[in-house]
Structure formats: C-alpha cells, structure tokens
Write a protein that binds this DNA or RNA. Sequence first.
DNA 1: GATATGCATGTTTGCGTAAACAAGAGGAGC
DNA 2: GCTCCTCTTGTTTACGCAAACATGCATATC
Lengths: 331, 331
Amino acid sequence: MADVAELAGVSGQTVSRVVNGNDRVTAATRLKVETAMKQLGYRANIAARALATGRFGTIGVVTFNLSAVLNVRIVEAVVTGAQARGYSVSIAVVDAPTEKDVRAAVRGLTDRAVDGVIVIEARVLDTPHLQLSDEVPLVIADSKAAHRHPTFGMDEAAGARAAVDHLLELGHATVHHVAGPAGSNPAQRRRAAWQRLLKRAGRAIPPPVVGDWSPRSGYDAALRLLADDSVTAVFAANDQMAVGVLRAAAELGRRVPDDLSVVGFDDLDFAPFLTPPLTTVRQDLAAVGRRCLEHLIAQIETPAGPATAAGTSRFVRPELVVRASTAPPRR
Amino acid sequence: MADVAELAGVSGQTVSRVVNGNDRVTAATRLKVETAMKQLGYRANIAARALATGRFGTIGVVTFNLSAVLNVRIVEAVVTGAQARGYSVSIAVVDAPTEKDVRAAVRGLTDRAVDGVIVIEARVLDTPHLQLSDEVPLVIADSKAAHRHPTFGMDEAAGARAAVDHLLELGHATVHHVAGPAGSNPAQRRRAAWQRLLKRAGRAIPPPVVGDWSPRSGYDAALRLLADDSVTAVFAANDQMAVGVLRAAAELGRRVPDDLSVVGFDDLDFAPFLTPPLTTVRQDLAAVGRRCLEHLIAQIETPAGPATAAGTSRFVRPELVVRASTAPPRR
DNA sequence: GATATGCATGTTTGCGTAAACAAGAGGAGC
DNA sequence: GCTCCTCTTGTTTACGCAAACATGCATATC
C-alpha cells in the first residue's frame, strides 16, 4: 500500500479510501491511485484489513455429511448467495451430530475467521435451548425451531401430510413408513406427522421401519415390510430409500403402482425417470439456504438488527409431485 | 494475549510460544500460561497471526456446480482431510467454466486468504498450458493433465475401456454412447476412449448423443437412440443419464438387459437398486480429493517441495462393477 | 473582506500476533 | 574457579491496513 501511495503521490490513507468503495476522493486522485494500483499489481492484504476492522468477510457453514444431497443443496445456495454479497464461505464437516462435536466445529470456525455461522441440521435432540455460540451471529437450517438461534427450514409436517393424504385419498387402508435415522430432525418430524395423520384418520398405525437415508436401507426395509401381503402403500422418508423400495418390490414381484404405491421425499433429479416415475414431495432447499444467508448477513451488518426476523415465514412449504408410482389399491 | 501474559506473570512472547506448539518452554511456565488462558477464555486472533506469519491456515476450493455428485465427493474428501491437517476450507462456485471466470474465482480466493487452491475440473479446453495463478500453490482435480499445475484425476480412458470391452465381450456388434457435455474434460475423454476402442476393434462408430449429465438428458438421448431397432448396447457417460436411458427403454418396451444392455459411470449409491441394477464404472473420487490435498499441503509447507510429485501415480483407476443391466444380445 | 462551512487529504495510532534479537540463569568442561 | 555454552525467557519491532483525528484549502455567507 505504501508503494502505491508513493507512486500516486498521495498518502496511504487515500489509497485505503480508494480501495474501500467511494468515500470522498476526487476523481483525479482516484484515477491516479487506481493506475498506480494497476501498475504495481496491488492487492489488499485481507489479514491486515481483518485485523484493523475486526471483520473477515467470511461466513462459516457447519454440516454433517456433505454428500447428503439435501445438505449440498443448501450449501450451494449459501455459497452462491454469499459470493454475490461479497462474502466467502468456509465449510466445516462434522462427523457425529452430537452437541459437543457441533460446538467444537463452530468454535473451530470462529477461532478461524468468520463473521457468522450457519449450522445445517443441528440434529442435537434433547437439547431444548441449544446455545452454540454467543460470539458471532448464528443461524440454523433445520426443521425444528427449538433452538436459541434463528432457524429456517422446511415444513416437514406439511410435506408428510401431503404424501399421506394423497395415499389415503387414493383409498389405501393405511400407509407404511420407511423412516430416516433416529438422530435426524427431518426424519423425526416426517415420521411424527405421518403417525399423527393416520391416527387422526382413524387408521391402523403400523410400526415404521427405520433406515439411514441410503438406497440400501430402503431396500432392506422394504424387504421386511413387503413380507406382509397386505401392505399396499409405502411412504419413504426420502427418494433414495424410495429407490430401494422400488427395487425390493420388483424383486418380490409386486408391481408398482398396481400392487403397491410408493411415495418419496425430496424430488431428486432422477425421480421422474425411475421405473415407475416416482411420486414424491419436492423441497426447495435452495430457498432455505438463501433465507438463512439473508438473515445471517442482516445480523452481521446491523448487529442490533432483527432479533428473530419476525414476520418472515420461517418454514418453506414443500409440494407434492404426483407421478406414476401411486394408484388406488387393487383389492 | 497481553492479559494472559500478565495473569501468568510472563511475557506475551512466552504465551505465543505456548500457543504455537512446543517451542522450548518449561513445563511449569507452560502450565501457568495454560491455566491463565483457560481462566480468561483466551483464543488466538487468527487475523493477527496471519498478518504476522503471512500464512492463513486455509485452502480454497474452486468448483462448478456443487450439486454434481462428482464434485461434491471430491470437496468432501478435501474438507475432511483439510480439517484433519488443521486447515480450513473456503469454497468458491463458478458459474461458467471459462478461463476468465475460473481465474477470477481463483483471484477472489487468493484476495481473500488462502495458502493454496484446488480447482476441480478446470474444464478450460483449448488452453494448452493454463496458468491460473502464480501467487499461491495450485492443484487441479481433473482428468486431463495439460495444465501448468499438478493435476490429479481419474483414468477416464481406463473406465471407458472397461465399459466398452465388457459390452463387446458380451457379443454386441457395437456400442452406442450417451456423452457428457462438450465442455467437460471427463466427458471428452470418456467419449474419445469409447471411439478409439470401437475403432481398434473394427466396429461401426455410431454418432454419440450428447447430454448434460442430467437424467432428463439421458432420457431424451435414449429416445432418439432407440428409435433405431438395431441398438443393443448403450454406454452412458454417467449414472444419472443411465437412469434416463433405463426409463426410455422401459417406455419403448425394450427390456433391459434382454433387448438392451446399459452401462453407466460413477456407481452412485442408487445404482445397485435401479431396475435392473446398473452395471457401471466405480470411481474413487475421495481418493482424488485426498491426493490433491496431500500434494497441495506438501507444496504449502515446503515451498521448494516436490515440483510435480514425480513418482506418485496421478490418475486413479476406476473399476467396472457388473450388475444386471448388461447381457449378451439376443439376436 | 472577514468569518464560517464543507470537503479532500494527510498524520498518528492501534489492531494482536510472531520473528528477530537480547539477556539472564544454570550447568558442563577444563 | 573460571569460561563457555545451552536453554529459557524477555524486549523490540514489523506485519498492512483502517479509524480517529488533524490540517489546509476553497467556497459560501454576511
């Protein structure tokens, strides 16, 4: 910076002003400084700026298991949005979704250099008022709002309701469920909504089979489920497991949708091209990511800002997409 | 830091020594400092450290399209490995894979604070000796080595060869190809290898149909391809497109594998559970990510280090997984 | 024409840390 | 018993930038 200042014949402070948007600098001096910067290939040292300002221009994202499509979509939306707003994004992946690990990851991130943190799927059950960090604004992307931090997510119950209602309206006596893992909030909420709906409709509530989101677990679950001939409708907690269910049905000679109706959740890009095309619940996860980001940046840039973003709807409603894997029961 | 030093009755420099691993500090003073740190909740300011050392403890990753499963797997491996080595990871997503955009992203990252950069799939064709940055070590994850930076990737040709050989050995007269997008190196290399193999085997080389990796594009491509009754074998450049091919075959009444053999590429988790289970080429992308990271960190930590990692194999060999979507032709 | 006002620019200072150098204490070797 | 060396600890300084304050000049106001 000193070199630039000297070459341009101004003070370092003026260079700083030119670099940091338009304070009040004459067009002439601005030009001088800019040409000097270009000539010297000057690039600001972000560490020094951070040290001087106390801000980093970076937000952190904590997630489990990047390879879960669900999480990646949110991360992508956050990264894209953050770039557009001039922030960069640091990512931390946590192995186990325990409170300890998450907190450690958040600390790792704040130890590093972030102005705010987004935690995807806090997953820490039995922690009514989780306080992950008080050093830095923190937003949670999850479908459960029982945290002390602003939370945005999907309306899982609405999604599950759409799926179950659809199957009941088709005339199925009840709906079986292949649930997601016990530690996952979305899984718990989908399962709870499914159960609540059956109860309200006065239907039998068969024990759910628990999977781990993977196609294999869906396959295994369906193998068990379909041992019972009376099963006519299965609601899988995600599309991947639904793939496994379809496979198991094919192997057992149960035709979908004639003998068995299947509904997934997520509407992954392959869902329309399965055999048969999968009826599923579409989630706009990018919207969740964007909302988290907006809220976080608002908190960062106006620290006294909107404490909880009252007024903005916090849970995005998913939408049922009916394809060819569901039909009325044949008997 | 000053507070800690005062409380512990030592100098700031001694605190610094305790914080940064074991220089040479008496066990007694170390203990004093550590208790003082704990008591005051001291946490080092990373911006100040970066300013003083010129190092950031962060590596940057540039990628297109995080939602491509392929890329995510690499990113995940990089993030996990980086964490284990004490680095954090910043991610930049580039819209268009042009040289200009990539270079801008790399600059954006280095403008920020990274000690090194990994670019996933450089994709800049017609740039024989791409020089993305000379300010910072840079490693490319791609299947084409014509860059001026160290490159690690898959042996795409070997993968394609395994797929095509498998189909030819089954007795198919030739193999049709649903290719990936023109701008993608892996797509180009898979396509080139497919073509080369058919030529070497003296088979007809049907014009490939180009998709964009999505299931939909695979579906569209297969619809066109299967208009020709003589098509008995299709090699899709990835599993997603293979899903579309399977769907198109089902709609057109072509049974797989009896009437039509299909091979994919990637071995995504749902591949074994498609109808029929998909024969495909398994790629260990995590290994690619790990190698990139190792090489990058080596360059960062020993700047004069291994200029091109001579000796380590740079391209991971994929492996054919035969399932039920391939069989000898019936006629 | 003198004073007030506003705006562009310069000067000083501090952000929190680690590197380089300096100093002191203790022990080994002769 | 003296010198020399080694090991621990302290002191000084620089990293590159922006905030706060200071200056000086030009214009407006009466």
